[in-house]
Simulated scan of single mutants.
Amino acid sequence: MLRRDWNLRRLRVAQGLLQERLALAAGIDRAYVGRVGRGSENVAISTLEAMARALSVPVAHLLVELDGEAERPASSKAGRKPAH
Rank of each mutant, 00 (worst) to 15 (best):
R21N: 13
V64E: 13
Q15I: 01
S40W: 14
R21E: 15
G79Y: 02
L11R: 02
L63G: 03
L18C: 09
G37I: 01
R4N: 04
R3Y: 11
S76K: 11
G37A: 07
G27P: 04
A54I: 02
R10L: 12
L55W: 02
Q15W: 03
P73N: 04
A78M: 10
A25E: 09
A44C: 00
L8T: 03
G27I: 06
R3K: 13
K81S: 09
Q15F: 02
L63P: 00
W6M: 04
G79R: 09
V13R: 06
A70K: 01
A54Y: 06
L2D: 11
V13G: 07
L2G: 09
E69S: 09
P58V: 05
A26V: 02
A60Y: 01
E65G: 08
N7G: 06
V36M: 08
R53C: 07
V59I: 08
D29F: 03
L11N: 01
V64M: 10
Y32C: 00
S46M: 10
A14G: 07
E41T: 10
E71P: 05
R38H: 08
H61I: 00
A83W: 11
R53A: 12
A60D: 11
D5L: 07
L48G: 11
M51S: 04
G27V: 04
K81P: 00
D29R: 05
G68V: 07
G16F: 05
Q19R: 15
E49P: 00
D5S: 09
R10Q: 14
N42W: 08
G16Q: 02
H61S: 13
V57D: 05
D29W: 01
S75R: 13
A25H: 11
G68S: 15
D67E: 10
D5E: 12
S46Q: 15
S40F: 09
P73T: 01
R12W: 07
A52Y: 01
G39M: 02
A70E: 10
R35D: 12
R35G: 11
E71R: 13
R9I: 11
I28A: 07
R35F: 08
G79E: 09
E41H: 14
V36R: 07
S76N: 14
A70G: 06
H84E: 14
E65Y: 07
K81Q: 13
A52R: 05
V13W: 06
L2K: 14
A52I: 04
E71G: 10
E69R: 08
L55R: 03
D67G: 14
E69I: 02
V33G: 06
S75Q: 10
